[in-house]
């Protein structure tokens, strides 16, 4: 039987910016090198970091993984959000995130990101068996 899982998240861009500026390792802990390159090439990187953070969180919500709470969860690094040639964002997963998706027999996923004013929002839909 096909199952559809959905996750949505909203991020306060100013809040994320404050945390990034205060913690030197936040960006490298949470975002992959390709994500950093992409975001930092944009006019306002923080909007794009926030959109990606929301997408990662949405994926975790859709899959029902939760996060560790005690520690800096590496799961964020394992969910990579990059633009396809068309510009539409795509999710690439590896490591523990990929293992958890396989357990849930996920075979397709879509992500959509948007932002306005001081907020970035993302929605992830996962399709599994």
């Amino acid at each position: 039987m096909m199952k559809i899982l959905q996750g949505i998240d909203i991020v306060d861009i100013s809040k994320l910016k404050r945390i990034i500026q205060k913690n030197k390792t936040f960006i490298s802990d949470i975002f992959t090198e390709k994500e950093r390159e992409y975001c930092e090439s944009r006019k306002d990187p923080y909007i794009h970091f926030a959109g990606r953070f929301a997408a990662k969180e949405s994926f975790m919500k859709a899959l029902g993984t939760g996060f560790s709470g005690i520690g800096i969860d590496h799961l964020f690094q394992e969910i990579e959000v990059l633009p396809a040639p068309s510009g539409k964002p795509e999710l690439h997963i590896k490591g523990w995130a990929e293992k958890l998706a396989k357990k849930r027999r996920i075979r397709q996923c879509t992500v959509s990101i948007s932002h306005a004013s001081d907020y970035a929002v993302a929605s992830v839909i996962l399709i599994g068996n």
């Binding site: 913690n23 969180e57 996060f67 800096i72 969860d73």
Partner: peptide, 9 residues
């Protein structure tokens, strides 16, 4: 989750 990261840092 973002708060958890901030607290841990």
């Amino acid at each position: 989750s973002l708060d958890f990261l901030d607290i841990n840092y």
